[in-house]
Simulated assay, not measured.
Amino acid sequence: MTTGRWLTAEGAALARQVLRRLADDGDLAGLALPVVEGRPDLRELPGGGLITGDARLAGLDLRRAWLFQALIEHTELTGCRLDGADLSGTVLAGGSVTGCSMTGAKANDLLIADGHWEGVDLTGARANHVTAERTTFVRCTFPRLAKAEFRACSFEECRFTGPVRDCQFLAAPRDVFRDEERAPGDRGAALREFAPGERGDAFRDVEFASDDLRDTEFHGMDFESVRFPESDRLIVIPRAFRAVARRADRRSASRTDEIGREFRRFLSSQSLQRPEKSETAGWAIDRRGLGDIAGFAAETLYVAQNELRAELVDSPPENVVGGP
């Protein structure tokens, strides 16, 4: 089957019927569609600009379909094949995507909002400028990403298979326990900040396969069993980056040259000036974006982290459950 089947008079009429059904409730019963591997054959369907709402699309073969700039709202996609489909500029909002394959899809400028994605394979997809908001991703496989933004999202048992460049993972803004709210000398407060907490914006059992995280930022996201490659290119603080940053800032005070000053400015921009940072959030960065301060930053942050870990082990506060 090729795109040509949709270009005949009969094929074009069938395509219009299919698109009307998809836009309604997704029920394709009664249409003269061939079946491929148990799925209605919608391969290469010309569906650019499709608009659906409150539909259920289940078990469809949409490989190489043209679905660019579609608006798919409050729709359940279950067990569909969208390998090689053109999803450029498509909006998926308020619904779910479960057990679907999107390998090799064109997903540039894809917008995902208020959704639940589970068991979705995006391996090899072209995914530049993807934006996702308030969405949970479970057991999803992500491709190489560039200029993507994930805001108020959570990731569970997911794998990022390629470089993640110039991307942002941002927690929702929230009230934080600020330095000035602490009583002077309240060492217990600093230690409590280094303890694990309950968070919604988090990576849980997530793997980053590549150490190429250039220009990527993690702000306010909890790291729970997050695996990065063993690499000197990365600096990873898996928990309580704000507390580590404050300790590193104090430790660096004796260094008054430009390296020390630039390092403190960097810490401020990454932590102290970020209201979305929770006290349990982790942090990671690619050293290649740090220039001359990379070596000093890695050493100072790891020393600060180890000091706080040792203090928490030696004198755990009463409200701490578990360790760093």
Score class of each variant (00 low, 15 high):
residue 262 E to W: 03
residue 83 D to T: 07
residue 297 A to R: 04
residue 215 D to E: 12
residue 97 V to Y: 09
residue 300 T to Q: 13
residue 218 F to V: 08
residue 154 S to W: 02
residue 173 P to E: 13
residue 249 D to L: 09
residue 305 Q to H: 15
residue 255 R to T: 04
residue 198 E to R: 09
residue 192 R to S: 03
residue 246 R to T: 02
residue 150 F to S: 07
residue 143 P to K: 08
residue 216 T to K: 10
residue 40 P to K: 11
residue 62 L to G: 02
residue 139 R to A: 15
residue 58 A to I: 15
residue 236 V to M: 02
residue 183 A to N: 08
residue 266 F to E: 01
residue 145 L to F: 13
residue 186 D to R: 07
residue 294 A to Q: 01
residue 159 R to F: 03
residue 275 P to E: 09
residue 227 R to T: 07
residue 12 A to D: 12
residue 259 I to Y: 07
residue 236 V to W: 02
residue 52 T to W: 01
residue 32 A to M: 05
residue 158 C to L: 03
residue 34 P to T: 03
residue 177 F to E: 02
residue 187 R to C: 04
residue 96 S to F: 04
residue 253 A to C: 05
residue 296 F to H: 15
residue 144 R to Y: 14
residue 146 A to Q: 09
residue 24 D to C: 00
residue 72 I to T: 09
residue 203 F to R: 11
residue 60 L to T: 05
residue 208 F to M: 01
residue 152 A to D: 12
residue 100 C to G: 02
residue 70 A to P: 06
residue 63 R to M: 03
residue 267 L to A: 00
residue 243 A to K: 06
residue 160 F to Q: 06
residue 231 S to G: 02
residue 73 E to F: 10
residue 127 A to N: 06
residue 235 I to Y: 05
residue 201 D to I: 08
residue 300 T to R: 12
residue 237 I to Y: 04
residue 287 R to H: 04
residue 299 E to A: 11
residue 208 F to K: 10
residue 27 D to F: 06
residue 31 L to F: 10
residue 70 A to F: 05
residue 91 V to Q: 02
residue 275 P to R: 13
residue 151 R to A: 09
residue 158 C to F: 06
residue 114 D to M: 03
residue 260 G to K: 06
residue 319 N to W: 05
residue 74 H to R: 15
residue 27 D to G: 14
residue 42 L to A: 03
residue 275 P to D: 13
residue 37 E to K: 11
residue 116 H to I: 09
residue 219 H to E: 13
residue 294 A to K: 07
residue 189 A to S: 14
residue 55 A to D: 09
residue 40 P to L: 13
residue 284 A to R: 11
residue 112 I to L: 15
residue 166 D to W: 07
residue 150 F to I: 14
residue 7 L to P: 00
residue 169 F to Y: 11
residue 311 E to C: 04
residue 265 R to G: 10
residue 322 G to I: 06
residue 43 R to G: 15
residue 297 A to P: 02
residue 210 S to K: 11
residue 59 G to H: 13
residue 86 D to W: 01
residue 201 D to K: 14
residue 214 R to E: 11
residue 130 V to R: 11
residue 9 A to W: 01
residue 154 S to F: 01
residue 258 E to A: 15
residue 193 E to F: 11
residue 201 D to Y: 09
residue 144 R to D: 12
residue 288 R to W: 00
residue 154 S to G: 06
residue 66 W to F: 09
residue 4 G to P: 00
residue 286 D to C: 11
residue 113 A to T: 07
residue 144 R to W: 14
residue 189 A to G: 08
residue 187 R to T: 11
residue 95 G to C: 11
residue 105 A to S: 15
residue 141 T to Q: 12
residue 38 G to S: 13
